[in-house]
Nucleic acid binder design. Structure first.
Lengths: 107, 107
DNA sequence: TTTATATATGATAAAAATATCATATAATCA
DNA sequence: TGATTATATGATATTTTTATCATATATAAA
């Protein structure tokens, strides 16, 4: 049985979803615009936004036929914290040797 | 090409690896003891410890034929922060509906 | 009230991560 | 030195995650 921490990382440790959060750090954006900015396919984006929404990381309001998304305060704090840590450990992470260098690639 | 953030989550968002960090939050432990406490297989544990070590999240010292591991300060801060956030969002995460409820299971 | 735009849904294919297996090394002790 | 304990390594099987496809719905405008 999965625990809250498992769900937390399932939600956050996804490239597309984390990118969405990064983009929402300082402004509200509608789905279509996110799609253009991030280059995520429409279907994936929709699934990912719903996930983030259901998890409570972002909030949504309708504006005509668009849906406008905004990050919530605590999540913004966490995303900033993660970004900070990534910067600190960047050089180690990139030469870990256990984590795969490329998607689908050899170490 | 993977970026630092991708490696960061590859390293941290792994159940075993995050559990190891949780266990190392307040004390040093050797590999064998971690194995007993966490119920991870020897091989996996070894791979995971090496990963965390290479990423700079933990440090190691040899003690006879044992290897004793300790979390570093910044990582401890991050792990605590994550634990805090998991607590805040727990109820939402568990009923996301997009994230799978069980490994290998239906939503 | 038909058409267009914006986004959602669910099934499955494709890709990636994790666990397991067999074996290797390193340190200590008899 | 040979045996034992503690841990590491690399290849591959297994499982899980992510992307894609086909289609649906919701809102607005013509």
């Amino acid at each position: 049985m999965k625990k809250a921490t498992d769900f937390f990382f399932d939600a956050l440790a996804n490239k597309n979803r984390f990118n969405i959060l990064m983009h929402l750090r300082n402004k509200e954006i509608c789905a279509g615009e996110l799609q253009k900015n991030l280059g995520i396919g429409q279907t994936n984006l929709s699934h990912d936004l719903k996930c983030l929404l259901n998890c409570g990381f972002i909030i949504m309001r309708k504006d005509g036929r668009k849906r406008v998304y905004k990050i919530n305060t605590e999540t913004k704090g966490l995303v900033d914290e993660v970004a900070k840590h990534v910067k600190i450990y960047e050089r180690y992470l990139k030469k870990c040797g256990i984590l795969k260098e490329e998607k689908n690639g050899r170490i």
